[in-house]
Structures are given as C-alpha cells and as structure tokens.
C-alpha cells in the first residue's frame, strides 16, 4: 500500500502541476495567438525564446530562474519587500519551474490549433461588427479550444515529471517542494527506499500515461471536428 508520506508527495505533485498549467494558461494563449497571427521579422526570435525551455537542460533553466528569483537577487528581494515571503525553495517555486518548463508544449499546441482556425472567419467576424478582442473571444478562442485543452494536458504531464529546474529552484523540502521525481530520487539514495520509490514510479507512469491518452484523445477530436 502507498504510505501517507507517499500520498503527500503524489498530491503535492498533482497540485503543483495543476497550478503550473493554470499559471501558464493565459500567457500561453497570448503567446500562441501572437505566434500564429503576428507577421513580423521579430516573430522568429520570440518563438525561439518561447521554445528555449524545451531544449535547454532543465537544470540550466532552473539556475536561470534562481538567478532572477533567488532570495538575494533583485527580483527576489523586491518580492520579499512586497510580500514578506520568498519564492525560492517554496511550493510556489515548484509551480514556477514546472510552468516554465511546460510552457513551450502548451504554446506550441495552442499555436498550431490557432493556425488551423480559418483567418477568414475572423475577417467575417470583424466585418459583422465584432472588434479584434471580441472576435478573439467569440471565434478564435472557441475554435482552438480542443488544441488549448490538449496543450494544457501535455503541459500538465510535463509538469508532473519536472525534476531538474525544480531541484535547483525549489530544492527538496518534504511536504513543500518534494514532488514525485524529487521524492523518487531521494528514495533511491536511502537504504530500503527502493520499494517506496517503485510505488511512486508506478503512480507516475499511470498519471503520465493517462495525461498523454487524454491529450491524444483531445487532438483526435480536434481533427475530427
């Protein structure tokens, strides 16, 4: 059976991954739309920056984040001055790390589904009296919803598995930043930890597989629709 400590790890992981997707969703939709519709020489650069976390070693991403958000860094200090709290080595840091690493997957799925929306529908909407924002909310967004959903599921799965950036930015604090991958790594380094690690691995495989299947199902629906 799964022990209570392991349940804590699993629930924390799910909470962190959900929060990461929620945090990334609005900027992800904005970036996806921008990359799908913006015709500008700078677009390639923006796209490169957005996709960077996909190819960077997560540890490097984590270090860059720490460089910006760390307790002794300007942004970290600013945050401390505002809230009295810290970002690094907290659950919030886990969420940020997972959101940043999952961001390219989310944006790419949204970008592709928005590219698939016939831009002439948007033109017709404008000519019928709906402004750009109204057109986005009434036409572009609903028509790319399946893509947004499959991107969100994919980003969720990626967030569940996030290790490198998390360990650098958030550390390994039991109950706060010890997500499934961090816990598995920790368990593998202690005597008699293997059985517990195996249980977490099983949960991890099940969750990831379910998320991937959901993503496939959503994109199949998009193609059919």
């Amino acid at each position: 059976m799964i022990a209570e400590a392991e349940w804590t790890v699993v629930l924390l992981s799910i909470r962190v991954a959900l929060a990461a997707v929620l945090v990334a969703l609005v900027p992800g939709i904005a970036a996806g739309w921008l990359l799908a519709r913006w015709q500008h020489p700078l677009r390639a650069l923006v796209q490169g920056l957005v996709m960077l976390p996909l190819v960077l070693p997560p540890v490097v991403t984590g270090y860059l984040l720490l460089f910006v958000l760390g307790r002794s860094r300007p942004f970290g200090q600013l945050y401390h001055a505002w809230t009295g709290g810290h970002l690094a080595y907290t659950t919030a840091a886990c969420v940020i790390a997972a959101a940043v690493v999952g961001f390219p997957l989310l944006v790419e799925a949204i970008r592709l589904s928005m590219l698939a929306v016939d831009s002439r529908l948007e033109q017709v909407s404008r000519s019928l009296g709906r402004g750009p924002m109204d057109t986005f909310v009434r036409v572009t967004l609903p028509l790319s919803l399946p893509g947004i959903a499959s991107g969100a599921v994919l980003a969720f799965a990626r967030a569940l598995g996030e290790f490198g950036a998390t360990i650098v930015l958030a550390g390994n604090v039991a109950g706060e930043t010890r997500t499934i991958p961090v816990a598995v790594y920790t368990l593998l380094n202690v005597r008699d930890g293997e059985a517990a690690a195996m249980r977490l691995v099983a949960v991890s495989v099940a969750l990831s597989l379910a998320a991937l299947l959901a993503s496939f199902w959503l994109s199949a629906r998009r193609r059919a629709g």
């Binding site: 002439r120 529908l121 909407s125 404008r126 019928l128 057109t135």
Partner: peptide, 17 residues
C-alpha cells in the same frame, strides 16, 4: 476599423462559424 464600417461581408464559400 472593419467592425465600425457597417459593411457586412458575404464570402464565396459560406464561412459560417
């Protein structure tokens, strides 16, 4: 802006939402 011209466009393929 197109939305303020009050000129409704009907296209060759009926582009319904």
């Amino acid at each position: 802006a197109p939305e303020r011209r009050r000129l409704a466009l009907v296209t060759q393929d009926p582009l319904l939402f």
